[in-house]
Design a protein around this nucleic acid. Structure first.
Lengths: 340, 340
DNA sequence: CTGAAAGCGCTAACAA
DNA sequence: TTGTTAGCGCTTTCAG
């Protein structure tokens, strides 16, 4: 079994040119090649079934056409759609994308940052768990942040306007007659992100002159388990029926799980209590009652992140851009109108 | 701005050894190095912050520590969990995984196969849209198939036992008193996969001596849109109430969407009609009524696929293995017991 | 427009 | 146990 190695030299031999010419044809560098030579080379390439060795090419020009995308968890529908959008935008540019999951763990995030530094990747798109992106900045990595970090101007960012989104939800509840609105903050993730939503809540309640009831503030993990526990916490509030009429959740999974657990406990969501979510994951439309929530434009966000990365790679010294997408209200059936 | 290039020569210089010794330390080849030299090298590495250039290493030994995972759609929860499991198993081995989406398109699958052939990847895990895996076999690619292809013994495979899973669902419906059971087959995807489920259906109906009613066989895309259309198709069957008591769906998304559309049309799933799904995606437990379905062990499947790939890469000539996972019945609330 | 030649950083004989 | 040396396949000056 002979193994006739297939390199540009062989291609050149068949095409009757030197390997330099072959290289000029296969690289996009635009070195000038005669029409005739080019055709001969392309013919030889397809006849031989040649494909360029990316290691050798990468070794020369240190371009890998590989991007690293780090998200909390790809099995989470919010993130999997962002991943999908990034891939869809990057692949036509010849890029492949490696996906990493942090599980909201700082340690795991660090290990991906370390992986990045092997030089294997041209760029990084990351939802950073920490507020500390010095590592990224110092290393001079072409990177795009996904998530809100409005105080950071030194790095390309795409995110959603958390404060605006939360306010939108609160205003909708308020307009529906709700005054006793509970809020759920996250146990994990960036403190800053967390406080945005919470700040919106306190600002709103204050602006409307509503009582600040510490019993209306809950903490839960943004997950199905979190929703179950949250249901218990709510029902455990003494006289909750008279004190809580609506709940603003940190994300849809939590909201949906909350709804189901409440129903199982005999409290009908969308009737006895109103629930509003955040994200508008695809399944939110398929629950019962269908979830009223705030939509975040995941596809656009992913696409924009990919585009910013392409620009950054193309010109590492350009001024960073910051794109904050507003949330939009999606009215379904989990919020009831109540009379005061 | 001087750019002090950082290669093993520099590391060796600081450690007082040659670059060969450094290479022996950083590669896992296990060439013998004295304790002292090793320590010196490691110290130099961390002092310099050196990371091995993967291009150069790959160029030498044609190992990329990169795997390509091709699935229909990563935004689909069934697949995103498989992706996650593969990543979790491969990353500790030093692998990064690139994810590709075919959207069930043969053309897209081909383009990923072409991408693979750039030599950039060590292995491939793929849910092939086509039945034609000759391309993979011919190219001698270290590959693992995800999906049922029991007739193929020449390639490592992990899948679920579709026939068994469908029969399990049918038996459960039968035991609950259902006789007028409709089946939904897929519009897309492998014909073979499709026919497994359908074969199970016809076999079952025949074994139970139930009438073969062509009106009980529906076709739908395995998606939320498919579920909406399916609901319309079912309700359009003249006198459907007396002819259809239960529906066996091809996957959960379809089933959930069917349930919701039916309800919106005034037909209460889990009461007026029974629905059984397939997959047990996480959200199936959170719908209303909670979906009775057949669970496929996604995490185990992904893990096993990753392990098979590792073995295959380690020994390309080993005998292929075939792992078919049985589905298990998850009883929730979407199937009612009926009396005859 | 084309060819010759010099490496990119690393690994794996081969010698010592 | 260690160092020397010869490439892996490609890109890119530099001549011609």
């Amino acid at each position: 079994m002979k193994k006739p190695k297939l390199d540009i030299y062989e291609v050149g031999r068949l095409a009757g040119v030197s390997k330099s010419t072959v290289s000029r044809v296969i690289s996009d560098t635009g070195g000038s090649v005669s029409r005739k030579a080019k055709d001969a080379v392309n013919a030889a390439i397809s006849e031989l079934g040649y494909t360029r060795n990316t290691f050798a090419a990468g070794l020369r020009n240190s371009k890998s056409y590989l991007a690293l995308l780090v998200v909390p968890d790809i099995a989470n529908p919010f993130w999997s759609e962002i991943v999908r959008a990034v891939q869809d935008r990057l692949e036509p540019e010849g890029y492949s994308v490696v996906v990493g999951n942090t599980d909201w763990s700082e340690e795991r995030e660090l290990s991906y940052l370390r992986l990045f530094r092997t030089g294997r990747f041209d760029g990084l798109i990351i939802n950073s768990v920490t507020d500390d992106i010095d590592l990224i900045l110092e290393a001079g990595i072409p990177a795009v942040l996904v998530g809100e970090r409005s105080e950071l101007t030194q790095i390309d960012t795409v995110g959603t306007a958390t404060y605006q989104a939360a306010t939108l939800a609160l205003q909708y509840l308020y307009d529906a007659g709700h005054r006793r609105i509970a809020v759920v903050t996250s146990e994990t993730g960036s403190e800053r992100f967390l406080s945005r939503r919470f700040t919106a809540y306190t600002d709103f309640m204050e602006a409307k002159g509503l009582a600040k009831d510490p019993d209306l503030v809950f903490t839960a993990h943004l997950s199905a388990e979190g929703g179950e526990r949250l249901a218990g916490d709510i029902l455990a509030v003494p006289g909750w029926k008279d004190r809580i009429s609506a709940v603003l959740c940190g994300n849809d999974i939590l909201a949906i799980s909350l709804q189901n657990t409440l129903r199982a406990r005999g409290v009908e969501p969308g009737r006895d209590i109103s629930v509003i979510g955040m994200d508008d994951i695809p399944i939110a439309a398929l629950t019962w009652p269908a979830l009223t929530t705030i939509r975040k434009p995941r596809a656009e966000m992913g696409k924009k992140a990919a585009e910013l990365l392409m620009k950054r790679i193309g010109d590492p010294s350009r001024t960073p851009e910051k794109h904050l997408y507003p949330g939009t209200l999606v009215i379904r059936d989990s919020v009831v109108e109540i009379r005061n």
